Simulated scan of single mutants.
Amino acid sequence: MKRIITVICLIIAFSVSAQTSIKAGNEAEISLNNLPDKQIKARMLTSGKIQNGSSLTFILSEPTSIAGVSTKKGQIISGIAREQDGRLYVDVSTVKIDGKVYPTKIKVYSENGIEGFGLSGRNPNSKKPIEISNSGTNAILMIY
């Protein structure tokens, strides 16, 4: 009787283990599908006081292609600033390359790999403009 119970327990344990590893593999596949096509280094050109809805401008530090169009090092990328939960996010939905506008999806990350830029010491409900003290802040643009 003990042997039968042990065998049943082992079968259940292997079954649960196999299901868990299958689920983990599926989750990995899903997250791989959401990875960006490219990660490009850039520098912020904007400085001074900004608010939600202000334009932030970046310059690419290397050549790449966006929306299937080749760009050169020094390409200008602009996005709309949005403050949320103590971070400054930048929404980039279009890019102007050689006088033409292309739809795109680009997310801006700080150098530490976190989306947006930290706004330390700022009251989350503050209506005061956000001060960007120096242009040249490094960023990573994730191009999807």
Rank of each mutant, 00 (worst) to 15 (best):
K73L: 13
N34T: 13
R43P: 00
D85R: 13
E83Y: 00
S55R: 13
P36H: 05
E83S: 02
S78C: 07
Q75P: 07
N34G: 10
E83F: 02
R43N: 15
I50T: 02
M44L: 15
I50E: 01
A42I: 08
I30F: 13
S70M: 12
S78I: 06
N34R: 14
G79A: 04
Q84M: 07
I30V: 15
Q51D: 12
L45F: 01
L56M: 10
N33P: 00
A42M: 09
S61E: 15
S65H: 10
D37T: 05
N52Q: 10
G68L: 06
G74C: 07
S47V: 05
S55K: 14
G74T: 10
F58I: 04
S47C: 11
A81P: 01
G48A: 02
A42Y: 06
S31A: 13
E83K: 03
S47W: 03
N52S: 10
Q84C: 03
P63N: 09
L45D: 08
I76Q: 08
I50P: 00
F58K: 07
F58D: 05
Q84W: 03
G53E: 10
L32W: 12
A81E: 03
S54I: 09
P36W: 04
I66S: 02
E29K: 15
E29Q: 14
Q75S: 11
P63C: 04
S61R: 12
D85S: 12
Q84K: 10
I66P: 03
I30H: 12
L35I: 08
Q75G: 08
R82H: 07
I80G: 05
N33E: 14
L56V: 09
I59H: 07
G74R: 07
G68Q: 07
A81V: 06
D85W: 11
K73E: 14
K38Y: 07
G68E: 00
I59P: 09
N52W: 05
N33D: 13
G48D: 00
F58G: 07
S65W: 02
N52M: 09
D37L: 02
